[in-house]
Lab assay of single mutants.
Amino acid sequence: KFGRVHERAEGPAKILAIGTATPFHWVDQSSYPDYYFRVTNSDHLVDLKEKFRRICNRTMISKRHMFLTEEILQKNPNLCSHNEPSFDVRQDILVSEIPKLGKEAVLMAIDEWAQPKSKITHLVFCTRSGVDMPGADYQLIKLLGLSPSVQRVMMYQQGCFAGGTMLRLAKDLAENNKGARVLVVCAESSAIGFRGPSEDHPDNLIAQALFGDGAAALIIGSDPKMGLERPIFEIVTTAQTFVPNGDCHLALHLREMGLTFHCTKDVPPTIAKNVESCLIKAFEPLGISDWNSIFWILHPGGNAIVDQVESTLGLEPNKLQATRNILREYGNLSSACVLFILDEIRKKSGREGLKTSGDGLDLGVLLSFGPGLTIETVVLR
Results as ranks from 00 to 15, higher is better:
residue 347 K to L: 00
residue 31 S to R: 08
residue 121 T to S: 13
residue 58 R to M: 08
residue 249 H to L: 13
residue 263 C to N: 15
residue 317 P to C: 05
residue 21 A to W: 04
residue 295 F to S: 03
residue 16 L to N: 07
residue 289 S to Q: 10
residue 344 E to I: 00
residue 42 S to E: 01
residue 84 E to V: 14
residue 300 P to H: 12
residue 76 N to W: 07
residue 91 Q to V: 04
residue 305 I to C: 11
residue 302 G to T: 15
residue 284 E to G: 10
residue 117 K to C: 01
residue 264 T to Q: 06
residue 148 P to C: 00
residue 316 E to M: 03
residue 357 S to H: 02
residue 139 Q to A: 11
residue 271 I to A: 05
residue 13 A to D: 03
residue 303 N to C: 14
residue 311 S to V: 05
residue 305 I to Q: 09
residue 110 I to R: 05
residue 134 P to I: 01
residue 61 I to N: 10
residue 359 D to Q: 08
residue 249 H to S: 14
residue 285 P to Y: 04
residue 325 N to H: 06
residue 30 S to V: 09
residue 370 G to M: 14
residue 111 D to K: 13
residue 125 F to Y: 09
residue 349 S to W: 07
residue 107 L to G: 08
residue 124 V to M: 15
residue 141 I to T: 08
residue 95 V to D: 08
residue 62 S to I: 07
residue 250 L to S: 15
residue 266 D to G: 09
residue 272 A to P: 09
residue 233 F to S: 11
residue 367 L to Y: 14
residue 146 L to V: 06
residue 50 E to K: 11
residue 299 H to S: 11
residue 145 G to C: 05
residue 293 S to T: 08
residue 138 Y to I: 06
residue 312 T to D: 14
residue 354 L to A: 12
residue 335 S to P: 12
residue 370 G to V: 12
residue 251 A to H: 13
residue 328 R to D: 01
residue 137 D to F: 08
residue 232 I to V: 05
residue 275 V to L: 15
residue 328 R to T: 04
residue 23 P to D: 03
residue 68 L to V: 10
residue 329 E to G: 05
residue 361 L to E: 13
residue 134 P to Q: 12
residue 27 V to L: 07
residue 111 D to C: 01
residue 266 D to Y: 07
residue 93 I to R: 12
residue 342 L to R: 06
residue 83 N to S: 13
residue 260 T to V: 08
residue 317 P to I: 02
residue 55 I to Y: 14
residue 128 R to M: 01
residue 364 G to P: 15
residue 375 I to T: 14
residue 282 A to T: 05
residue 73 L to S: 12
residue 270 T to P: 10
residue 351 R to D: 02
residue 91 Q to K: 06
residue 134 P to R: 12
residue 142 K to Y: 14
residue 237 T to C: 05
residue 33 P to Q: 04
residue 260 T to P: 14
residue 244 P to E: 06
residue 238 T to C: 12
residue 83 N to H: 11
residue 42 S to G: 13
residue 361 L to H: 14
residue 303 N to A: 14
residue 273 K to H: 00
residue 33 P to T: 14
residue 346 R to V: 09
residue 343 D to W: 01
residue 378 V to C: 11
residue 81 S to G: 03
residue 50 E to L: 03
residue 113 W to A: 02
residue 141 I to D: 03
residue 94 L to R: 14
residue 357 S to C: 02
residue 347 K to G: 02
residue 355 K to Y: 03
residue 313 L to P: 00
residue 57 N to L: 00
residue 238 T to P: 05
residue 327 L to S: 10
residue 41 N to S: 04
residue 255 R to C: 10
residue 358 G to I: 05
residue 136 A to P: 09
residue 79 L to A: 00
residue 371 P to A: 08
residue 364 G to C: 00
residue 333 L to C: 14
residue 33 P to S: 13
residue 99 P to W: 14
residue 345 I to D: 00
residue 111 D to I: 04
residue 334 S to Y: 09
residue 340 F to I: 07
residue 250 L to E: 09
residue 257 M to V: 06
residue 40 T to C: 03
residue 52 F to M: 03
residue 330 Y to L: 01
residue 311 S to A: 13
residue 15 I to V: 03
residue 108 M to K: 15
residue 309 V to R: 07
residue 260 T to W: 10
residue 326 I to F: 13
residue 371 P to C: 07
residue 310 E to W: 04
residue 254 L to T: 14
residue 92 D to T: 07
residue 378 V to M: 12
residue 320 L to C: 06
residue 114 A to G: 15
residue 298 L to S: 10
residue 363 L to S: 13
residue 357 S to M: 04
residue 315 L to I: 07
residue 86 S to R: 13
residue 89 V to M: 01
residue 60 M to P: 02
residue 280 I to Q: 11
residue 317 P to T: 10
residue 239 A to D: 11
residue 1 K to V: 13
residue 327 L to P: 04
residue 295 F to N: 00
residue 284 E to W: 04
residue 138 Y to V: 15
residue 272 A to N: 00
residue 326 I to V: 10
residue 343 D to K: 04
residue 52 F to N: 01
residue 283 F to V: 03
residue 128 R to A: 15
residue 61 I to F: 05
residue 320 L to Y: 01
residue 278 C to Y: 04
residue 242 F to T: 15
residue 271 I to D: 10
residue 19 G to N: 03
residue 323 T to M: 14
residue 372 G to M: 13
residue 111 D to Q: 11
residue 13 A to Q: 00
residue 370 G to E: 12
residue 30 S to W: 14
residue 84 E to G: 13
residue 332 N to A: 05
residue 374 T to G: 14
residue 240 Q to R: 01
residue 10 E to H: 06
residue 265 K to I: 02
residue 133 M to C: 02
residue 243 V to T: 14
residue 339 L to E: 13
residue 318 N to I: 08
residue 324 R to Y: 05
residue 78 N to G: 11
residue 61 I to A: 08
residue 268 P to V: 03
residue 232 I to H: 07
residue 73 L to Q: 11
residue 4 R to V: 15
residue 121 T to W: 03
residue 82 H to C: 13
residue 256 E to Y: 06
residue 327 L to I: 06
residue 63 K to S: 13
residue 375 I to N: 15
residue 248 C to D: 14
residue 106 V to D: 06
residue 267 V to H: 09
residue 252 L to N: 15
residue 378 V to A: 15
residue 364 G to W: 00
residue 228 L to W: 03
residue 273 K to C: 10
residue 120 I to R: 11
residue 237 T to D: 13
residue 258 G to D: 08
residue 121 T to K: 01
residue 79 L to Q: 06
